[in-house]
Design a protein around this nucleic acid. Sequence first.
DNA 1: CACATAAGTGAACAACTGTACACAACGGTA
DNA 2: TACCGTTGTGTACAGTTGTTCACTTATGTG
Lengths: 193, 193
Amino acid sequence: MSAALTLVGKGRHFASLGIREVTRQAGVVPTSFYRHFRNMDDLGLQLVDELGLVLRRMMREARNNVLQADKLMEESVGIFINHVQANRSFFFFMAQGLAGESRAVQEGIRSEMRFFASELANDLRRLRLAEHLSDGDLELTCDLVVRSVAFSLTDLLGVSPDDDYQIDQIRRRTTRFLQLIFVGAAHWKSEGA
Amino acid sequence: MSAALTLVGKGRHFASLGIREVTRQAGVVPTSFYRHFRNMDDLGLQLVDELGLVLRRMMREARNNVLQADKLMEESVGIFINHVQANRSFFFFMAQGLAGESRAVQEGIRSEMRFFASELANDLRRLRLAEHLSDGDLELTCDLVVRSVAFSLTDLLGVSPDDDYQIDQIRRRTTRFLQLIFVGAAHWKSEGA
DNA sequence: CACATAAGTGAACAACTGTACACAACGGTA
DNA sequence: TACCGTTGTGTACAGTTGTTCACTTATGTG
């Protein structure tokens, strides 16, 4: 699995990886592959599971570190970016999988994102930051937040990991996206349709 | 090129297509490929160019058909969805290319999106719908709009093209995303940081 | 018409692919 | 220690891949 991730991290697309290629990278003979996976799709599914762990760790860290609400977005975006940098290959895989060729992987990633959004909604409720929003509207907002951040992911993966200037640009831009969304949420239905 | 698109439309990922496979689908001998493209990346780049045309057509239609401002978002989202349905394979290619393995294709698609966002900003200025926003903030808003719609693209491509119920769900959800963003834009800086 | 350019063909090649099978080394448990 | 399940190995095979070359056929312009 880490061999596959390594290749993806080097810019290859998961869909174009072959069994032999992966085992070669893993320093193991091709037939060994079948001891662990039935085919590449299977490997992809297991990677999605591990990706889930990575995302959960990120969520936990965000929950612990965001103490005061006023810096909530800056800090969350910061934590997100740090995790992406620390697990670049995983996030490459995630970005690819969203439009990948395995329906199952696609659905897996999508469901991780839904989970993430619903946890975010819970947190906002708990922190009493969304008292005027109905459950449906809060869910909508959080979904949009998660999508926006996920899209920033593709920006982030497009620049070199040590191009601090560009990364900072992305950080600010993503933060402003979130602020814009939350301003919208704050005034939602006070004038919305 | 349409052979490649056809394969992509059938669920294959562009990165995993081979020359022989494409020529086979095109009903032509493998060597003919080289009469038109140097390699698969080259083919991808030319597809991006054609994708640009598709997007421009869509934009033109949106401009012509959205007469009154109050239904602007519903109608734009509707036009978007119609175009996606009518050019499904193209949009599959677009969704894949955003995290594809050819940096050039990636950059091409990204630049189409930037263009789209800036045209949207122009239109909003022209329609006097964003008078209180600075150029930078308008650009930010339009970028977020385009990203949100692009993300809905992956939703749309994930459901069967004749599952009218689900498509309508996506339509409504996307519209609400846009409304949320524009409510945010309307109140931006009136209280934003 | 003749002719230049573009598009398509067929055979060939070495390199690589997924998968099968029988066999060897390992790790832990009785 | 003997045993068993797991992981890894080596060999093999038929099918596919990208690319080359010299060739024929189509197409449109003078």
